[in-house]
Design a protein around this nucleic acid. Structure first.
Length: 828
DNA sequence: GGGTCGCCCATTTTT
DNA sequence: TGGGCGACCC
């Protein structure tokens, strides 16, 4: 029943164009029968191409209609990419397809079924920080100790519970602390419900529960989506997998196309379960896993290194990347004396690459943790090299933008206490902590929102509060019928927000961002097609009977949704929903009334689900700085992996359990496979961390790479001797992917490689003075221990019998040793 | 109500 | 070392 009548197949346009240039594995994946399929897609193996071609092929061969397809990704970026690529392949109307992020699709689903899901129609979405502040309020209201119940940790607890599909009543709590946590969870849930808001995890969980508990809805969607495609399957958490099974249960054996790479699973810390891949294979009785191992990105040495490294992991589905591109250049390894010298070296190297014609944006500097970026940034800054750091504050997360959004939310839903509290006294209007406390007490007593309780506060504070709510009310009235742009401009003025930043001496940039917010709204309206004529309710043929029943009783048979040229987007299937005046993708109309969200409500949702760009000043050709995590999915001609030191990468917090080390190794695997042509690995003997100098040993990962693929620019045991410069120059002449740079006239440009002296803080100098009393042991120098082998001395403390040393033995970890007992001998 | 001081903390992050 | 946050003071 998954296939249309055979003559439809023959009538379909020749799909050969789509399938051209696919390798055999890609071809097999794209044209796999409409059954559960698992694609093991290696880095750079054309995964996105396979996914989008699969969709295009399904459509073109008539095996699916746009309305019968759901494709899920994790990031907005990935889903946009999919849509863009798809539209270049086919003149397809993408609006009937459910292509989006897990959360985006859940939002769409809940917007359509808000009533059945027990939500208010205009529910708004809390982002992570909104959620933490909401939890903070709960903890305060419960008069609990914030030291003991840290809002951030509680937030993590709640989100984790939700991601395990657990409601408060499902959690077994025995000790006091856990019981209280569950009580907070419950209170938070009540509060969110009262205020008409949901957090990210709630979007998923509510959708899941509605599917689980409502047979009519479940059957409808199960019939509708003949094809479900999932990207980055290794990153799915327990709830996401369960959610998926609701939409396409194993028993139905529908076309579930799961694509993932277990070797690139690096999000266990936020609940991702690589095990879902194996579970999927088993539960869906996947016939044969298709492996995409042909790599189109990197040269052989890079891939050999990646393969060799990842082969050390025990739990793998098994996969080996290969290329036809030849070995390329060796991986260049550099040992620096200090983090400062490391930064200095890499920017000189980057400059040299740039002089050879490589664009700066093709050069990425990767690090394990954000703190490492500072020294690199300052070196780049001092050298006047443009750079871009990923991972900062995103547009919709900026304080001024969030303030403006809070006002807008209050227009939409005045009972949103989070927003109320955010702006009730910003800009200041004489409403102090005391007044707010009184207001909260009153609200709590009556079980109503803050907004509804302003009348209960007497005196000056009360009248100030009243002034605030009437400001909101009058702006709401004033903006009836205005465009979104006009609404925002109006609230910025009437709230005094714009005025505040105009008067603030440092407000220029914030004012600019508010202007940017107006632009973003304008762009959103244009993109989503909220034209003037879009106000009319666009649903026809909607049966009132179904509405009053409160259930999608009139669910259309699957055949109705299948095979139609223009499949309806209505979540209720066969009925015709017309999107009069709504060009492009539009917001799903309500399933029962067909009502479309107001542009304002839609924009607020958009702002919550897509926090915007997180990179600074785009546009300029700049070196890219980011953590290894944020590099996932990206690729660059040249990549520097920095700080390859024990304790940093692999990170010390991951060393306690083998699973942790394996995840670090996968992280390294991701880092390596980002590079197309050149890969640099570097580490430093000393590093300033948390204001203290740390002495690190090189990462174990160096021992896990094929020696033949590496080129040590600083030969070990040779120090920074005179032979080094020659050695180094040799490595330049071997370029294969890049223009050769060796030759007359270049020597002047050649980076200099004097080892920078280790910068010594006062502390380090003092420690060394003490070291004289420890039989030649010196902080920062090597030591030998009969059991643990070689290590680096980190700290020396105490005297006589109490004398002790802290030694970093790398693989054996950091140890404290009593010098009276342990035999430590200095080496070097 | 706003500004300053001092304390505490310190992988990785998308929605 | 430096950012974020709460307490405290004017």
């Amino acid at each position: 029943m998954n296939l249309p009548p055979s003559d439809d197949l023959f009538a379909a346009p020749e799909p050969a164009g789509l399938l051209k240039n696919l390798n055999p594995e890609q071809y097999a994946a794209v044209t796999a029968p409409p059954e559960p399929v698992l694609i093991l897609a290696g880095a750079g193996s054309g995964k996105t191409r396979v996914l989008t071609t699969r969709i295009a092929w399904l459509l073109q061969t008539g095996q699916a209609s746009p309305g019968g397809i759901m494709a899920v990704t994790f990031t907005n970026k990935a889903s946009k990419e999919m849509l863009t690529r798809l539209s270049t392949m086919l003149p397809v109307n993408v609006r009937g397809m459910w292509i989006g992020t897990f959360h985006g699709l859940c939002n769409r689903f809940l917007r359509a079924h808000w009533k059945l899901a027990g939500l208010p129609q205009g529910f708004q979405i809390l982002d992570a920080s909104d959620s933490v502040s909401a939890i903070k309020r709960v903890i305060k209201a419960m008069k609990l100790d914030e030291e003991r119940y840290v809002p951030k940790q509680v937030s993590w607890f709640i989100a984790s519970a939700k991601e395990d599909a657990q409601r408060p009543q499902d959690i077994e709590a025995y000790d006091e602390q856990s019981k209280t946590l569950v009580a907070i969870y419950q209170a938070y849930e009540d509060q969110c419900q009262r205020e008409g808001v949901v957090d990210f995890a709630e979007l998923m969980l509510r959708s899941y529960e509605l599917m689980r508990d409502n047979a009519a809805v479940r059957e409808h969607y199960q019939r509708r989506f003949q094809h479900v495609l999932v990207d980055e399957f290794q990153d799915t958490n327990k709830l996401q997998y369960a959610w998926l099974k609701m939409f396409s249960p194993p028993a139905l054996r529908r076309g579930v196309f799961a694509v993932g790479d277990d070797d690139q699973s690096i999000y266990a810390f936020r609940g991702a379960r690589v095990g879902n891949m194996a579970d999927f294979e088993r539960e869906y009785r996947v016939g044969g896993v298709i492996k995409l191992e042909q790599n189109y990105r990197s040269f052989g040495n890079i891939l050999d290194s990646a393969n060799e490294l990842i082969s050390r992991n025990s739990k793998r589905l098994g996969k080996n990347l290969r290329t036809e591109a030849g070995p390329g250049e060796p991986l260049r390894v550099y040992e620096a004396a200090s983090d400062f010298a490391e930064a200095q070296w890499l920017i000189e190297e980057a400059q040299a690459l740039h002089r050879q014609g490589l664009r700066r944006q093709e050069i990425a500097v990767l690090y394990r943790s954000n703190a490492q970026s500072r020294v690199i940034e300052s070196a780049l800054f001092n050298a006047g090299i443009p750079y871009r750091v990923y991972g900062g504050l995103r547009f919709f997360e900026r304080a001024e933008v969030k303030h403006a959004l809070a006002y807008l939310r209050l227009l939409e839903n005045p009972n949103d206490d989070t927003s109320f509290l955010r702006v009730v006294n910003f800009p200041t209007r004489g409403i102090g902590a005391r007044a707010i406390e009184l207001l909260q007490d009153a609200a709590r007593l009556s079980g109503r929102s803050l907004y509804q309780s302003v009348g209960a506060v007497a005196g000056k504070a009360g009248s100030n509060l009243l002034a605030f709510t009437s400001l909101i009310d009058s702006t709401r009235n004033l903006t009836q019928g205005l465009t979104l742009r006009e609404i925002i401009e109006q609230i910025l003025e009437s709230s005094g927000l714009a005025e505040f930043y105009r008067n603030d001496k440092d407000g220029a940039e914030r004012l600019e961002n508010l202007g940017e917010l107006v632009n973003a709204a304008e762009a959103f309206v244009t993109r989503e097609g909220f034209g003037k004529d879009a106000v009319a309710l666009p649903v026809d043929e909607l049966s009132p009977g179904a509405i009053s029943a409160g259930l999608p009783a009139a669910v259309a048979p699957a055949q109705e949704t299948l095979g139609r040229p223009e499949s309806p987007d209505s979540p209720l299937g066969g009925r015709t929903t017309q999107s009069v005046g709504l060009g492009g993708r539009r917001v799903t109309p309500d399933a029962e009334t067909g009502e479309i969200m107001s542009p304002l409500a839609a924009f607020l949702t958009h702002a919550s689900l897509e926090a915007g760009d997180n990179q600074a000043q785009a546009g300029q050709d700049a070196v890219q700085l980011m953590t290894v995590h944020s590099a996932k999915g990206l690729e660059f001609d040249a990549v520097f992996i920095t700080g390859l030191e024990e304790g940093l990468f692999p990170h010390e917090n991951s060393l306690t359990d083998p699973e942790g080390v394996e995840e670090e190794r996968r992280l390294m695997y991701v880092a390596i496979t980002r590079a197309r042509q050149r890969l640099y690995l570097c580490f430093s003997q000393t590093r300033m961390l948390h204001g203290q100098t740390r002495y690190n040993v090189k990462s174990r990962f160096f021992d896990e790479l094929p020696e033949a693929a590496l080129k040590w620019l600083t030969p070990r045991n040779q120090g920074f001797g005179s032979g080094f410069a020659k050695e180094y120059q040799d490595s330049w002449s071997r370029g294969s992917g890049l223009k050769s740079v060796v030759g007359a006239g270049r020597s002047a440009e050649k980076p200099s490689y004097e080892a920078a002296p280790v910068p010594r803080s006062m502390k380090a100098a003092a420690a060394e003075k003490v070291a004289a009393e420890f039989g030649g042991l010196k902080v920062g120098k090597g030591v030998f221990h009969t059991k643990f082998g070689e290590g680096v001395l980190m700290t020396l403390e105490g005297t006589g019998q109490d004398a002790r040393a802290q030694v970093n033995f790398g693989r054996h970890g950091m140890k404290w040793l009593a010098l009276a007992v342990a035999k430590l001998t200095p080496i070097d």
